[in-house]
Design a binder for these strands. Structure first.
Lengths: 229, 229
DNA sequence: TAAATAGTGTCTGTAAGACAGTATGTT
DNA sequence: AACATACTGTCTTACAGACACTATTTA
């Protein structure tokens, strides 16, 4: 069945932008792209979050667009990927009324080669194209707040990983120390980890290795860290 | 400054849909609209969430579109309004690739007249147009989960309100009883309420009336209700 | 054996839940 | 006085934090 064409009133541009995070060199890093070196394009040469227009011929869903962008930029196909929010206004893109759907993604540690990876907090200080400073800041806020009460940082590690590694990842994202005993109790009680045998890490006692019991989503802890602050 | 027109590749349709909730007759209600009675339109006559296309001539931002829709349907200008998520795919609208940004809104008790208000759980049972069942279900999930750890239900009341009224609102949304003493301690400790004098409610002891200390956003409690369940 | 890393045990603190009790209003 | 509603107090429980302790590995 087909429908009479909607009286075509003008449509906004629709894009997807992705804040892609990883932990490397003990720092939370974010992947940036660079605007084309072309004065006919807005924000020439400036840094921005990787993204692009929805291609209605190849993307079946918005999520597909995000996955495609992620694959084009990182070669990764199945990381943690979550909708963040959208920004839409008449003025955010000088080419016209535009809407962007922002996503955020978590990747295991990368060899940071060809691509532009920057410590997340440094990236916030730059002048990013469009409203990408806002988007990046929101992504960071969302990430950090979810880290207080979910198992999200597990998606920043490659499997198998140990509890001390997981704790270090939490500490890097949150930028503060956590208590070992409390961390371990809480992680183990939440039952999102499956033991996969001892791992020897070069020095000191060997540690139990774990995998995620299910990679589909993070678990929520009964309480956030540091309840009252 | 103006830019060379982007090689115009086809754009998706962009709309906004709003799940508007209120509490009336001790039930959480959601506002529905009805698709036009016209076989040239998709889903003729079916119920749907109120919404519509972004009008790039009158809306400055996506948020404006949501506020406009809300005003058109309810006459309300400044309720609680929050982005929910977006749904975009080639198939969700038979007229073509479309993206909708869903919002959810909370209103104080209404006289439910001309409009189609339905108990939220009943509305979920209906066959709504497009993917509006998914959207409504997500909105309900988000609302109910935020109610566990925030002061959101205060936006479902008109001011001033009493703590027993607020508690009843929580109970209606969550569909379960809460302990009075715990509820009061937690609400008062969170310091989001300002006393505005006693209120006499027809029978029994009069109660302290409160207003929100700030109407901009809800507060988050140190812990959710019923931590471990 | 010393150093480094992994893991445990015990005590405390905080905020929620249970539930009984008191206070204040109307008819 | 009877009842309905508002509010408080005390005890328990769950789970995070502090921190000292034990365990296992390599050099």
């Amino acid at each position: 069945m087909s429908y009479a064409p909607k009286e075509t009133f003008p449509k906004p541009l629709v894009s997807v932008d992705v804040a892609i995070f990883t932990v490397s060199d003990s720092v939370l890093q974010v992947l940036l792209a660079q605007r084309p070196d072309n004065a006919n394009e807005p924000f020439p040469n400036q840094y921005c979050l990787p993204g692009g227009y929805v291609n209605i011929d190849i993307d079946m869903t918005l999520h597909d667009t995000a996955l495609r962008k992620l694959y084009e930029k990182t070669g990764f196909r199945a990381p943690y990927l979550e909708q963040l929010a959208s920004w839409g206004s008449a003025t955010r893109d000088p080419r016209g009324w535009s809407v962007t759907q922002a996503y955020f993604a978590l990747l295991p540690p990368q060899e940071l080669e060809t691509q532009i990876w920057l410590p997340a907090d440094e990236a916030c200080e730059l002048e990013l194209a469009f409203d990408h400073n806002d988007i990046l800041q929101s992504a960071l806020n969302r990430l950090r707040s979810k880290v207080e009460y979910t198992s999200l940082p597990a998606f920043l590690l490659s499997e198998p990983f140990t509890l001390p590694q997981l704790q270090r990842t939490y500490e890097i994202v949150l930028n503060r120390k956590l208590d070992k005993s409390a961390f371990r109790k809480r992680s183990l009680d939440a039952k999102f980890l499956t033991e996969v045998g001892q791992i020897q890490g070069g020095f000191g006692r060997s540690a139990m290795g774990y995998r995620l019991a299910q990679r589909e989503q993070a678990v929520t802890f009964p309480r956030p860290f540091k309840s009252g602050e």
